[in-house]
Amino acid sequence: MTLKQVVDNVAAMPASKKAVVDIKDLSLTFQTADGPVYALSEVDLTIEEGDFVSFIGPSGCGKTTLLRVIADLEKATGGEISINGVSPEAAREARAYGYVFQAPALLPWRSIERNVTLPLEIMDLSKEERIKRAHDALKLVELNGFEKKFPWQLSGGMQQRASIARALSFDADLLLMDEPFGALDEIVRDHLNEQLLKLWARTNKTVAFVTHSIPEAVYLSSKIVVMSPRPGRIIDVIETKFPKDRTLDIRETPEFLEIAHRVREGLRAGHGHDE
């Protein structure tokens, strides 16, 4: 990719986009028996429509907590947060996002198809509609043909793909992913990253993605949020200028290495506060 292409890409972007997630001065303190734990403090962040935002940082930096606050699985203790202009709770009630957990969390008594139709069932869709959508979602993650299998009959990577299909099935515009490929080996991970990118390019969804892998963050994201622990806060936000239809080859380019270097520097600086 030439520099000109990069510039063209930037130029092609619309000037102002709708903010999907808007966070101002957010903090979260857990009260524990050993005193308060400051999980998040002074977090300011805007995620725009069509962004692929990665949260990266050492364990304990609050990146998962931040994602859970966005998903209304944790409540912030200070600051403001809005999802699509409404509170996280209202957004959750409106099924505004699909969440992919670290583990597949497939229900073992349901077949893959019925696992994918679970959210659709809760949303009271008709049976034909459910089957059709499950079929489409499974096709997106290349799992068609495995509808009638049970989760334990699939490999770990396939199970995680099924859980992504489940998050995609009800077509929410926001996708929250909490280290979805953390437990998978490098090769499967690369493959799933590629698939995820294709999906993002095709559907124009907004993705928030937690990871602790620098190459993964740089490869996938349009925006990288570097976080540091105790208290969890944002220390750097890096925009990448790669096109949406990037391939694994960009990992060899100088731009890629430069961004990876900046992320690493950020992580090191954030870590330095502890020593």
Binding site: A71, D72, L73, R92, E93, A94, R95, Y97, G98, Y99, F101, A103, A105, L107, L118, P119, I122, M123
Partner: peptide, 12 residues
């Protein structure tokens, strides 16, 4: 499990 309960919560 907690994970499954969280999952159900995300579906409201």
């Amino acid at each position: 499990g907690k994970l499954e309960k969280d999952l159900m919560a995300t579906y409201a």
